[in-house]
Amino acid sequence: MQPVAAGVMSPFHAGVFSLVVFTILVMLFIASQLFLAAWLGEKKKSPEKSRPYECGIIPTGSARFRYPVPFYLVAIFFLIFDVEGAFIITWAVVYRKVGLPGYEQMSFFIVLLLAGLFYIWKQGGLDWRETGKRADS
């Protein structure tokens, strides 16, 4: 038999087509589990059961409260560092080809990144411990 052309739709090629089929299989599996649970599961509603769990006490106030600022800071630092990580990753693939000049430029970039990290560190952006100075939220 002659080989099937290695196209996108070829089932013998471990490419995107295979991934799509796998994704569909996984989704079918999860859907079947949820369907079975909805079909066979118990269905008895009661106000006690559907109340959010707070160790048996009737919940007070909204559950969508404001949360501490450091979480926002972490999210912002993550964005910055992840974008810069993307630059490093692209360099890593062609690291042999770009040779010494590429390494020099990249090491400057990484040192700059480290300097930025130490700056955040010094400014207290990474401190989670209560310092006593922070006002109550």
Partner: peptide, 21 residues
Amino acid sequence: NSKYGLLGGIRGAAQMISYEL
């Protein structure tokens, strides 16, 4: 809509994005 859930969720998000770096 649970206080424990929300705390766990934001802790989880902050932890996972930090360690992903």
